[in-house]
């Protein structure tokens, strides 16, 4: 049995008095693509943000690379974060910076690499996401799909061990969405990454998922491989895989 790279135990998350996640326990294994599924408002993004300490968990344990992060100090957690790439739902590129400068931020801030090496790395990463021609463009000059790809280039700038993507296909047409999936799979093989993806897209799940985590109203409904998910008798999961809707 593989050792999980991220291990979440009995995670409880609250907004004020409202409980968003209730005793969620999930293991994410290395070099796999784990898809977090669930209806709108079920707590998928909250789950990711609690793992990343963007929100402080109310209770429970989150271990990344075997280390408990909930009680970790900022400096120690920053070291963990430098091994994680994050693709936000809307890209979250800094609008005042060019695509090149956006992608270079992690390298400039977290490494002591010489500038010419950084420049080469960024050009290669932007070429990998097919944006080699757009390096001097500003985010406002890019389409939605291009922004996502630029954000992906920034997320993989440090060759992270873990890549977390929050709804990478949201708002994209099926072709762009499929090409983004292919790109993520290619990067997974190239960089030997562990990938966690929040998505609703059934086609995308079939293409990329190794493992499924299904959340419903803040509770864990199912966790297992894609094959197990397709065969399960849990009504919500079954309906989703049959109809493609929640």
């Amino acid at each position: 049995m593989k050792k999980p790279i991220i291990s979440v135990k009995n995670l409880v998350a609250k907004y004020g008095e409202e409980t968003i996640l209730e005793n969620v326990s999930v293991d994410i294994y290395p070099h796999e693509v784990t898809v977090i599924l669930g209806g709108s408002g079920c707590g998928k993004t909250t789950f990711i943000k609690n793992i990343l300490k963007l929100y402080q968990p109310f209770s429970g344990s989150v271990k990344i690379f075997g280390k408990e992060v909930t009680s970790m100090d900022e400096q120690e957690f920053n070291d963990i974060l430098s091994k994680i790439g994050i693709l936000f739902q809307n890209g979250a590129l800094l609008n005042s910076l060019s695509i090149f400068d956006n992608a270079a931020i992690p390298l400039e801030q977290h490494t002591k690499l010489p500038n010419n090496v950084i420049e080469k790395m960024i050009k290669v990463k932007l070429d990998l996401v097919n944006l080699g021609y757009a390096i001097h463009m500003l985010p406002s000059e890019l389409s939605g799909g291009m922004k996502k790809r630029a954000a992906l280039a920034r997320a993989i700038a440090l060759d992270p061990d873990i890549l977390i993507c929050d709804e990478p296909s949201a708002g994209l047409d099926p072709l762009t969405s499929a090409s983004l999936d292919e790109l993520i799979l290619k990067l997974k093989d190239l960089l030997n990454m562990t990938i966690v993806i929040v998505t609703h897209e059934l086609a995308s799940i079939h293409r990329i998922a190794d493992r499924i985590v299904f959340l419903d109203n803040g509770r864990l409904l199912f966790s297992g491989t894609l094959e197990e998910a397709k065969k399960t008798d849990i009504p919500e999961v079954k309906t989703f895989f049959e109809v493609g809707k929640f």
Binding site: L113, V117, M121, V124, D159, L191
Partner: peptide, 11 residues
């Protein structure tokens, strides 16, 4: 070796 290493070799 990672992408930084390859960029260094290119350089």
């Amino acid at each position: 070796i990672d992408s930084a290493g390859i960029a260094f070799i290119d350089e």
